[in-house]
Design a protein around this nucleic acid. Structure first.
Length: 377
RNA sequence: GUGGGCGUAGCUCAGUUGGUUAGAGCACCAGGUUGUGGCCCUGGGGGUCAUGGGUUCAACUCCCAUCGCUCACC
């Protein structure tokens, strides 16, 4: 059973600092998990990821790895850690989000989801049992249950049925998890996912259904899909009230730097988001003084670093003008340098949040920082 | 030198028998991106239609001259 050890709780907010341990090492929270959907965090190698960026855990994806390279290859490799040369913890999403994001390619049925592969059109049926089995082959330290991430906007009846489906699947996910065993000699954990769209009573029902199954951790899913940001904060605040103190709390897919700080203040421990990596590839970088669009002509002869207060490899060695040149020339080094910076920034952000929670001055720091990082330069 | 073809946005080109305020793609400029395809989406600035005359109610479009590019033949 996975437990989070809460070492410090903020007195003015629900923020908490702690840690949990897997067989691939300790994770200090609050934490941001870089997204490595296909067994790679795009544009950055594992050595930089560990030593420069100081990532403690990365996220990968069941749906994508199942289609390519497939479970046979993953098992022959001895699991994803060995395959991708990453010896720290890995969390895998179940493919539930692809039910949402690839909605044109799937049919939702009571027993599972029928996908048409986005690669070759072939048909695959994902059940809760199958998703557990694939994640055994992957060997992730933390696996997510199969869920349905409801679209937004979403009427009450749809959301209610969706929560019921997710709760039914959660039972099957848990059974399959307990009946099966890890393949590679180290422990694996399983997190449940709370749904319910924007409806508080459905969120409450969803979390209570999952609590009966005693998962190792609990995730809040189905947010940041188009609802107003304030509503997202309110739902996070509402939902964490029902989540156990001693288990990790994971807000899936969120978000912008300010979203992460506001959610830490509402009691969340874990985050993932494509934003630092995807936006890096589109020339958008995050700094302690707001975002920069590195294609902008105003950086043509700007020889300052991206962020003069940042200690990442990119900021220590390269200028804005050079980054802009690389992006305009479509050189691949642009993607690498911007990704290193953005991930370093995100992990620095949650690390500093952790320090301020322990120092008991989190709320004041958070309010100041939210304003500064939100600036659009 | 003779004959033909062509000159429209930074680039490659559309533009109907002459008829509203001359368009597209790329490039450029600026936004967007939340359990990731470097994809994609949305806006914007840009034109003495080679130049000068002429015909006409009206010319990118027809006529003449000049300049430039290009092909063929001497």
């Amino acid at each position: 059973m996975l437990k989070i050890n809460v070492e410090s709780k903020d007195t003015n907010s629900k923020a908490r600092a702690g840690w949990f341990e897997t067989d691939h090492g300790k994770v200090e929270t609050p934490i941001f998990m870089p997204v490595g959907t296909q067994g790679t965090v795009k544009a950055v190698n594992q050595s930089y990821l560990a030593e420069e960026i100081k990532a403690q855990i990365v996220l990968s994806n069941t749906y994508h790895l199942y289609l390519r390279p497939g479970t046979e290859t993953l098992e022959a490799a001895g699991g994803l850690h060995k395959f991708m040369n990453w010896q720290k913890p890995i969390l895998t999403d179940s493919g539930g989000y692809q039910v949402f994001s690839l909605s044109d390619l799937r049919k939702l049925k009571s027993g599972g989801v029928e996908f048409r592969s986005h690669l070759d059109g072939s048909k695959h049926f994902f059940t809760p049992e199958k998703v557990v089995s694939i994640q055994r082959s992957i060997g992730s330290d933390i696996m997510m249950v199969l869920d349905e991430c409801a679209p937004y906007p979403c009427d009450y009846d749809y959301a209610k049925n969706s929560v019921q489906l997710t709760s039914n699947w959660a039972v099957l996910n848990k059974e399959a998890f307990e009946k099966s065993k890890p393949l590679y000699g180290y422990k694996q954990f399983q997190f449940g996912i709370i749904q319910g769209s924007i409806y508080k009573d459905l969120r409450e029902k969803s979390v209570n259904d999952l609590l009966k199954l005693d998962f190792d951790g609990y995730a809040i899913g189905g947010l940041a899909v188009g609802e107003p940001t304030e509503q997202m904060y309110e739902l996070v605040d509402f939902t964490t009230e029902f989540m156990p103190q001693e288990r990790p709390r994971y807000l899936m897919g969120v978000g912008r730097p300010e979203n992460i700080l506001e959610s830490i203040a509402r009691g969340v421990d874990m985050f993932d988001c494509v934003m630092p990596t995807r936006n890096a590839r589109n020339a958008n970088v995050f700094t302690w003084n707001g975002t920069l669009s590195m294609r902008n002509a105003k950086y043509k002869d700007d020889f300052k670093s991206l962020d003069e207060s940042c200690n990442c490899y990119t900021c220590k060695n390269y200028s804005r003008a050079y980054l802009r040149h690389l992006f305009i020339a479509e050189e691949i080094l642009a993607l690498e340098l911007a990704t290193i910076h953005n991930l370093y920034f995100y992990i620095d952000l949650v690390t500093q949040a952790r320090v301020h929670i322990i120092n008991k001055d989190f709320l004041e720091w958070k309010n100041k920082t939210v304003n500064e990082v939100s600036i659009k330069n």
